[in-house]
């Protein structure tokens, strides 16, 4: 973000808020997202979703900032952030791996694909590796059963996966 834009946003502040600056740059990004939604409490979920997609997770500092600027109680934000699976209160990797465990994928060997992913990345479903590269999740159906077993990585769908192909696919992600 260039300096002019930062100044402009700072001038436009309607709500009182202190910049904690605990996470470098995060507080500015959160401010920009909140300003985009005109500081409206009704845009709470939209604001949280945008922070989630930019930052991959919702740190406590960001939630405090949102609570203060949108004038929404923190309990309410916590309730929403824990209710929807789209939000994460723990750090997530840059690429989310979703291994489909639906019926069609299951009978075509999804379990073996999952085992291979676990071995290659060193993480179990629900976990994130230490370099924040991958987060692993299992899902129940991705909706393209004819392509099974399906693995979705960072939004891109990889169909007809096999344990042997997995290493080649994962190699492409940094």
């Amino acid at each position: 973000m260039d300096n002019d834009r930062v100044d402009q946003i700072t001038d436009n502040h309607k709500c009182e808020c202190g910049h904690s600056g605990i996470v470098e740059g995060l507080s500015d990004r959160v401010d920009r997202i909140i300003d985009k939604h005109n500081c409206k409490a009704s845009s709470l979920i939209q604001v949280l979703l945008e922070i989630q997609s930019e930052n991959h997770w919702l740190p406590k500092e960001a939630l405090d900032q949102v609570a203060e600027r949108l004038q929404v109680p923190l309990t309410r934000i916590q309730q929403i952030a824990t209710f929807y699976k789209a939000f994460s209160l723990v750090p997530k990797g840059r690429h989310g791996i979703h291994v489909c465990m639906g019926t069609a994928c299951h009978v075509r060997g999804a379990q073996r694909v999952l085992d291979t992913v676990e071995n290659l990345t060193g993480i179990k479903p629900g976990e994130t590796d230490l370099d924040l590269k991958f987060s692993l999740e299992t899902v129940n159906c991705l909706g393209c059963c004819a392509l099974g077993p399906v693995v979705e990585i960072g939004g891109k769908t990889h169909g007809k996966m096999a344990p042997a192909k997995m290493a080649d696919v994962l190699k492409n992600y940094e």
Partner: peptide, 18 residues
């Protein structure tokens, strides 16, 4: 004061203090 609220959903729903 809103010091306490619900977190999670379904069978995992519980109260939580800030």
């Amino acid at each position: 004061k809103e010091a306490i609220g619900f977190v999670n959903r379904g069978t995992k729903r519980e109260i939580s203090f800030i």
